[in-house]
Design a protein around this nucleic acid. Structure first.
Lengths: 327, 327
DNA sequence: CCAGTTTTAGAAAACGTTTGCGGAAAATTT
DNA sequence: AAATTTTCCGCAAACGTTTTCTAAAACTGG
């Protein structure tokens, strides 16, 4: 049916070895021969069969991205951005990308067992058993948006981002700043929460026990929590949202209480997602270059696959405060 | 290094043919033999090599999803939802999924040429040359969110969705309804725009030339266009947004003009994306089950791959109006 | 217990490449 | 022109499965 290397070999009058070399290391074959081979290949519509190639070379040039996040998975803009970065970089590095979600992680592991993938990027809340599952099959692992010792990780500069937010608010004269954080992935919650306390302490700003609240990851939950926060006595003049969804909830709550924004209350988000400019007022937020995170993750992984020894255990990508009208 | 079928064969004392059968068609081997094989495999940590398997069977069980959308690609919630549906269904059907973006479409074609993928799902604005590129390599094609004759397509019921919107607004007493549509993918624009005109005509509601406007796909552009729409004489009492982003722009514009929503102006969105509940007022929008679109696309593709003859040329998934406070 | 039928298992030939090794040919030097 | 080096190419053995064909083994019912 399809032309094979033998057909090309026969038509061009050279051996299969030469045909093979003509396609994979053209430098090692004479120009004239090359021409004959390509001509024959063209005539036969020959394309090297990647499966057979992988078989012979014992390499597949495939990596996987496993999104470890309950529910929304790829729908989450942040993870989608990472995915986008991974996709593009993988393609440009001549790797193909397999994508899967947490629920099907075992399938991805078995893809490793069956020697189909050479490495995997785990996004978000990866469980240790997953990591060891891959490693035991010699599948290289890189984590993104998570930080576990012993595995190369790519993360955003959460401390820096939160610091920028606090600085910005303090510059605007705010002294009583509260934080509302949605329960997204544990790593992120931990980091941003910790960074907030640290940043406030460092600047000598007091944080009362009622000033930091948790809520679920949806808007309604955030709106409710924000209402309580705003109706307590001694209300804060600024609220830092742990992410943009939560911040949107804060805005809604404030609006319903008849507050003016940003005059009565400053609000900040985190992630600088697509909603920020859609909100009224537009939301000040911390921009994370998630595409770059994906790119770096691929870079680390390919370095690992190429056997490079100097892989930084932790790669931190900078964040940037994008100031809008909500502050 | 890794155990092969030969190792298992030797240790268990049966032929490689039997080992192969034990893993791929266990029904055809005696229980006792099966046990011995599995035991040996277990001891050797044997896992069948998928590449070799693909080589022998001339099948890879891999499909690809190519997102044909400029710029944001997977970041677009809609396409991400489709991707999610595809991913899950593909995994459950024992297919692995390769994902790529428009800019790298040639790579995906060459994945087809090199016999790595058996089928492809093209999301969004697929170009004819892509389709023929795949078909000439015997790679089966299914389109999603697009409609081109001769290829199985999966689309949302745009006409129905727009109809529901118009009905809903008409029920609320609106007679002067305008539409603002962002330039997203040509197919969607064409469908929604056409459906709007048809729906209005069918209900005997007039649509003046100034009542339908185009704008770019970003909020700012929508805000600006909406401002003009609202400041013309004879302003509409309701605006149908071609998607949620545009609707968010309409809300912003209305707010800035001091209008009350929904009293002075009703606004609807389209796609029912995550922003809807974040806006103030929460946005009425047409819900599209994009995950289901992805699932159906995979279903059509696998049917095609299984050689089924009865593939519906067009699969339409129903839409549902989700009414919120903006109307 | 036997002939007939159905299951079960093995031998060996694919599947389409890559690559180490060695020899021939070309290019370079003396 | 011979000697030497370098480049180019062919042979053939992997790579790890599946599967067809065939033979042996295990079941049937009489």
């Amino acid at each position: 049916m399809n032309a094979t290397i033998y057909d090309v070999s026969r038509l061009s009058g050279v051996s299969t070895a030469t045909v093979s070399r003509a396609f994979s290391e053209p430098g090692r074959v004479r120009a004239e021969t090359l021409r004959r081979v390509y001509e024959a290949a063209e005539a036969l519509h020959y394309h090297p069969n990647a499966i057979a190639r992988a078989m012979a070379r014992q390499r597949t040039d495939k990596i996987a991205y496993l999104i470890c996040k309950k529910g929304a998975t790829i729908l989450d803009e942040f993870y989608a951005g990472i995915c986008d970065g991974i996709m593009r970089t993988a393609n440009r590095s001549d790797y193909q990308l397999l994508v899967s979600t947490e629920e099907d992680w075992r399938l991805t592991v078995s893809a490793g067992q069956s020697k189909q993938i050479e490495g995997v990027i785990l996004g978000g809340n990866a469980q240790p058993e997953m990591i060891s599952g891959f490693q035991s099959q010699n599948v290289q692992v890189v984590l993104v948006n998570n930080n576990i010792a012993g595995v190369p990780c790519v993360v955003a500069d959460e401390a820096g981002g939160v610091g920028q937010v606090v600085d910005h608010l303090a510059d605007r004269g705010h002294r009583h700043i509260a934080m509302l954080v949605g329960r997204v992935n544990p790593y992120v919650v931990r980091e941003r929460y910790g960074a907030f306390l640290a940043a406030m302490a460092q600047r000598g700003l007091p944080v009362g026990p009622a000033d930091v609240r948790m809520c679920d990851a949806d808007v309604d939950s955030a709106t409710e929590a924000a209402s309580e926060l705003l109706q307590g006595r001694d209300r804060p003049t600024a609220i830092v949202g742990g992410n943009d969804v939560v911040a949107a909830g804060v805005i809604k709550a404030a609006r319903r209480l008849g507050m003016r924004l940003p005059e009565d209350l400053a609000v900040t988000g985190y992630d600088d997602s697509a909603v920020c400019p859609m909100l009224e007022p537009e939301l000040t937020s911390v921009h994370i270059d998630c595409r770059q995170m994906g790119e770096l993750a691929v870079a680390r992984l390919t370095a690992l696959l190429d056997g490079e020894s100097e892989i930084p255990p932790l790669t931190v990508v900078p964040t940037l405060l994008r100031v809008r009208r909500s502050t």
